[in-house]
Design a protein around this nucleic acid. Structure first.
Lengths: 262, 262
DNA sequence: CATATTGGTGCGATATATGAACAAATATCA
DNA sequence: TGATATTTGTTCATATATCGCACCAATATG
């Protein structure tokens, strides 16, 4: 990439948008400047630009995003065949088994939800397209990691913060790699309350006609209701059916995002 | 706003992201240039910047967005109290009545979904946070328009393309304004297959403790299953209950986006 | 009340946008 | 098919706009 083919102001502006999150819904210029590492003057110009375009609001002191920024994320969901292709299958699957079904792709050390059909909620946070979870302790993350060459999976795990989210969480790179081997052999991953107490899930890969990984598919359930050990028997047939139905429909170009290791 | 407080490159880059949509998932430089009105050289620089940052991919010919752009839209959903406040109530409401429940805000001539709890799908398109529908023919749009001063509502309608989406669609500004008056009096809006055949819905406003409009709330159902005429009797009590539960929780600052009339 | 922090401003150095020119690829037509 | 026209992607020079710094004013903090 040539130096002259890069619009610095654009990159900085995107950084500013991403500086907003649950912990910091309303931000001051100085706060943004500190979070992004941008100069205060630059952060201010980006924020005022966002306000001018209607993507943010400013009450004189704090800035906050407006619903208009949803246009941006929605541009992906609307433009990309993959989520739209998968969604109806998720709806049907979710209704058939009476549990939530989701699809996600790997991005860096996290999985990003690209489609979801929710049933009664069992997780503490509500997931939706765009939501992110750490790959190493989510069922879809496990199958996606297992699909990578082991050195790559290991590299991603090394970059992850493997802290225990529950007493059941595997917290070492080797433990997760071992589990990924088993996942690769059996063709699915089961998570038993490693991400959140009371939650278990089962995931499989979605591959295209040429066997290339397009996304992951899962079903989540309440652990008290459906013990993890029973999940393969209960849900694997349905997951396999969706997997088979989607295989010929997935286009090779829909493959994972391969974001730079920034 | 001072000329020097605007980052042109940022604004142009955002235009480029929004140029991607369902009709045009993969775009060439020339296509983007034509859509946005930017010079080919400028469009190219923005696209290469997106690729460099991992928000887009480039196969030598076409550009397409990656799931990473979902981070941007999600920044709003994660950072703003309103959707997170409403979501659990939608989940409960949706489960109680066995139909899909959604919340949206007005943005320009459209409503933007900010939260949703889906049941079995009755619409042809799948809605999710970030999805947009024309305000004038959606139940939530009607209550939001009805809440505006009539001149403002009229101005928005004048800017809308009021074409018939079904044989039942109201297609004149005056007809919609009349309906808005009735909506304002009765405190809810019912749409009977004006947006899509077989789909009807009922909506109410969500207001904060001081009576200011925060969002709209609706329940949608299959028209063959639940005739529109029965919706108020069936669903209004539940909607009113959620409305009342949320009123003290909504903060005045969460109010609608007020995007510039660009 | 003194001090630290924040928001806003002006300016020079530097990076970007622009439109034309060129090259490569693609389409069109005899 | 082969020659020509058209479209597209890329490069370049230069006018222009942005960046980051230093500085000032206003506000918060102790």
């Amino acid at each position: 990439m040539k130096q002259t083919d890069f619009v610095g102001g654009f990159a900085k502006g995107l950084q500013v948008i991403e500086a907003f999150n649950a912990a910091t819904p309303k931000l001051t210029i100085t706060h943004i400047s500190a979070t992004t590492g941008l100069d205060r003057a630059t952060a201010r110009r980006c924020l005022l630009t966002l306000v001018e375009l209607g993507y943010a609001r400013h009450d004189g002191k704090h800035f906050e995003l407006t619903p208009k920024v949803l246009r941006l994320g929605h541009a992906y969901l609307a433009a990309t065949p993959l989520p739209r292709l998968i969604q109806p299958h998720l709806d049907a699957l979710s209704e058939e088994v009476g549990q939530s079904a989701s699809a996600s792709v790997l991005e860096g050390t996290e999985i990003v939800y690209i489609a979801r059909a929710a049933q009664k909620r069992v997780m503490s946070i509500s997931l939706m397209p765009g939501s992110r979870l750490p790959a190493w302790c989510a069922s879809m993350g496990r199958v996606l990691l297992a699909a990578l060459p082991e050195v790559e999976a290991r590299a991603i795990l090394e970059r992850s913060q493997l802290h225990a989210l529950t007493p059941f969480t595997r917290t070492t790179v080797d433990a997760v790699i071992d589990e990924c081997r088993r996942v690769r052999e059996q063709g699915y991953a089961v998570i038993d309350q490693e991400l959140e107490l009371g939650l278990c899930s089962i995931a499989v890969l979605l591959v295209d006609a040429r066997g290339r990984v397009a996304a992951a598919l899962n079903i989540g359930a309440s652990a008290s209701q459906i013990p993890a050990a029973q999940m393969p028997a209960l849900y694997l047939p349905a997951l396999r059916r969706v997997q088979a139905a989607l295989r010929p429909l997935l286009h090779p170009a829909d493959i994972r995002s391969d974001s730079p290791t920034a």
